[in-house]
Design a protein around this nucleic acid. Structure first.
Lengths: 194, 194, 194, 194
DNA sequence: AAGTAATCGAGACGGTACGTCCGGTCTTCCT
DNA sequence: AGGAAGACCGGACGTACCGTCTCGATTACTT
């Protein structure tokens, strides 16, 4: 009846969880994914390997968790009244972050996820989805205001805007310069206005 | 005139090169990147590990080389006279390929490249650049014909078209369905026509 | 009193230790030192290489350990009352052993120790020293009985007796025949009696 | 008639032979046997590996050859008229040499020979035998002069004198100090005089 | 002068073992 | 029931030498 069925035995150590995330974040920042081995994380956190395995299925999972915990930068969307403005500002924030350490690490995380389906799932849930949902709000708002056509394929539209950033981040065939958001927004919106 | 500078010593074994690429391609196809270990490649090719290391710096490099060798599908661009047609057809060919084994492997290759700058370089040179250059030809042709504005940022434009495919391939937040090319081309061209 | 300082963690596997020694001894007997590679020992013992490295620093160390374990022939010294008899009998036992497989292996072990100081140390502690100490007892007993002069340099004396056996074993310039002990004892004792 | 049957083809390069011996000796002196790899010798000599293999069967063979070439110290036996004097002086010369680099290397050579019968053979021929024969001369001379008994087992006698030096060199259970020759000669001769 | 034959340099090759690293799993005791 | 400690098996890493092999280039003696 009582939902919170009190579990027997020693409860999970919150201290251990924090220590693991902290250790992983540090390793991640100055050594990239390569440095985030279960061995190293456990050692640095002063925790046994088994404990890490108990709560995270793989080193990738620890890394994503630590990353999201460490870079939990607010997904700021101001409402300027102009959808172009809103999108452009948000993209600039993201681009600025991706120009630094956070970008290199995100690239490695997505990279790692390509050979670990579970990690891809986690990455989507913890990083991608929240951002896309926030963007969707902006776009719906713009449609209501009549700034955008109502028949747009919003998923494809968002990909046109954001995928180039991730693509350049990962392939580095072109630089991630500051006017890129403006260009992308301009070109994408040109055919999307009502 | 150009004396072919005959190098001393035993010449490189073409047989070994072929065997390695073949072995790597096979391993890649039925096992993904995880199966492409230097050890396995060498064993399967009937070649010593040292020989592999001699000509390829890393397992990633072997894999990319083998991939490009194996999937050297022609980058077909018909000239239909209509830029939208041309782009859409090419994208469909690519999308079809990426829906199968080749897509999963490409995702892993890009993934691997995130923790190996040399590999990223190779991937750009061997896979990305040739395709972008072919696309550039199409776009320039369209501009000359007056189908596209002349002041477009072509690099950004190409990213708007192709990055979504790679992005969906890697994140799998949305399916790679067959009408995606049409949608992307339509939305992107809407604001790009003269 | 001395609390046996219970160490934390999983205790060392006695099973693994035995298996390694057994495997090494077998390899040693039918293949000599050349067959005792860390790889082969580990494989034959059904143990991981790391485990072997954990407890033995080198293949030489494993070999010596296995040798002493395998050929832990009693260092029998009967007390016949006559020092010449005692020495001669002991030397004959040793010579008989060295005429077979054990001799060839011991030669290889000493050989290996020439390029591995740690191994030389081990060899001295595990093989040479116990035998020399047993011999010292016999000599001291003889001195007390008045069978030998008290001012002998016992270390040099023991070398005169035993070094020729090892020397012939290693150089094979002369055979290790059964009357050698008698000759050596006779000549050495001739000038050593009181 | 002319014994030196002139062989066709390019004659062996004396330059290469010298270069190999020189290179091997240098490597031997500052790096021991471990440094004398076929690879290193060839590289240092500016000679191809095949050339080395052509004239020496193994690295051990090169090393012994280089050693004997480098340390071709005269086997001096003065004839003082007293056999004890003669032996002791010769042993002191040898002991002095063995206290330095030459000793360590000789130990390694004998060590190496334990797993290479061909090398043992070479070592005997090039190093041991000449010295034993010179010693035999001294002993025969002493017998003629009536300083030694005629029924001695000379081979065993020589072993009693010299084996301890090699034994201590290799096992290092006791130091190779300067008064050792005197002790050995005294004890050995005590029972060997007429 | 042309032919023959052995040698030489360079260096690629298949192979074996090295010593290390990490991933996961296990066993033991402590809390 | 956790958790810390740490030993364990397995697999791959990248490297070092081994001994063999193909090359083209030399260097003599033989016709």
């Amino acid at each position: 009846m009582t939902s919170a069925a009190v579990k027997p035995g020693r409860p999970r150590s919150e201290r251990a969880r924090q220590a693991v995330l902290k250790a992983a974040a540090e390793l991640l920042v100055d050594g990239g994914m390569a440095a985030v081995t279960m061995e190293a994380v456990a050692a640095r956190a002063g925790v046994s390997k088994v404990t890490v395995y108990k709560w995270w299925p793989s080193r990738g999972a620890v890394a994503v968790d630590a990353y999201c915990d460490h870079y939990r930068q607010t997904i700021v969307f101001e409402d300027t009244g102009d959808v172009a403005q809103d999108l452009q500002r948000q993209m600039k924030v993201m681009l600025r972050a991706f120009s630094g350490r956070a970008g290199a690490i995100m690239a490695e995380l997505i990279g790692q996820a390509q050979s670990d389906p579970g990690l891809r799932e986690t990455l989507r849930e913890r990083w991608i989805s929240p951002r896309r949902e926030a963007t969707l709000l902006v776009l719906h708002r713009a449609i209501e205001r009549g700034q955008l056509r109502g028949d747009l394929d919003l998923e494809a539209f968002m990909d046109e805007l954001y995928a180039p950033l991730y693509f350049r981040l990962m392939l580095q065939h072109q630089p991630l310069d500051q006017q890129l958001p403006a260009t992308l927004v301009a070109q994408a919106l040109a055919g999307a206005r009502r």
